[in-house]
Amino acid sequence: MGGHVRKFIENAGWPRIIIGLFLLSLYAAAPFVNVRVLTSLSDTLVRVGMNGVLVLAMVPMVQSGCGLNFGLPLGIIAGLLGATTSVQFEARGLAGFGFAILVAVPIAAALGFAYAQILNRVKGEEMMIATYVGFSSVAVMCMAWLLLPFDSPVMIWGYGGTGLRTTISTEGFWRHVLSDFAAFGLDGGAFYFPTGMFLFFFMMLFLVWAFFRTKTGTAITAVGSNPEFARASGIDVNRMRTISVMLSTVLGALGILVYDQSFGFIQLYMGPLYMAFPAVAAILLGGASVNKATMVNVVVGTFLFQGILTMTPSVINSLLQSDMSEVIRIIVSNGMILYALTRKTQVKR
């Protein structure tokens, strides 16, 4: 019996259990401080749907041994280009959203390809480099947002300046097109379920899961598990890594589009800078390691992480009359990443 418990703790890891219990206690405490559990749950679910695909974007690179994708901003940029282009062309509704995807995916694939060429030359040091490649690309895009020839009046600065605004509303274009699709509410609107967004999220989960069930997906997993073994089996290791990086980048682009349609705003400039960190923290929280991740890790991790993000402001604030959510977010997410990085893994390099 004690052995079982110990084994469970070993498998899950202390930080994960502590955070899980913390979230549980937040839900338990909610009714006592006049926070409606149903509303909180609804908020959590909306945020899970919003962030799910971004977290999913970690999986391919983790599986191929490229480590945690701190370069997520690269995919996000491609998504943002798709989003702004569709607004520029006044594409509305589901079609507009589809148009944004059509623009974003090839850009993401191209960026991902270039990004993979860098990562293939710096094996073993991918994570730090990915972080700064992500950061630099955000900075480059800051300049590009100023210079690109967008002229839709809803997007550019009002007072005669050139360049795009820092936040652009998707109201009237494709705000909530996924979220509201077959959405339903309960209890007079206290509970809202964004059915369409979840359908999209689960479709993506299914596609990625299916991809890793194919011959190529199997090869990518083997490359991540032991690149020397894969090479001895005739696999082109760099090619597999390239595919995984491109896939991650494309998922990043799709992820930000889902996020933006639910959020209602496109955030440009420095907005994407730190977006990789919550996604990284979420997948680690879900039980992934630096080189193994599953769909379950994605779903569980996103739920736990977003759960804490939604519950801490409401519950902790009511308890302590002070907004500690930001500090808790920083400590939880970075603590989780730190834990994963310092854990002794059996992985051979």
């Binding site: 997993t221 083997a222 032991n226 073994f229 001895a232 089996s233 051979k348």
Partner: peptide, 28 residues
């Protein structure tokens, strides 16, 4: 080829036995 470096080249240590046995045949 059955490599002398079992743990380094010969096996996917973190994967199951069936993966280890089938992988090369599947890919090649």
């Amino acid at each position: 080829f059955v490599s002398e470096d079992r743990r380094g080249v010969g096996l996917l240590l973190d994967e199951s036995i069936d993966w280890n046995i089938a992988f090369t045949a599947m890919q090649v």
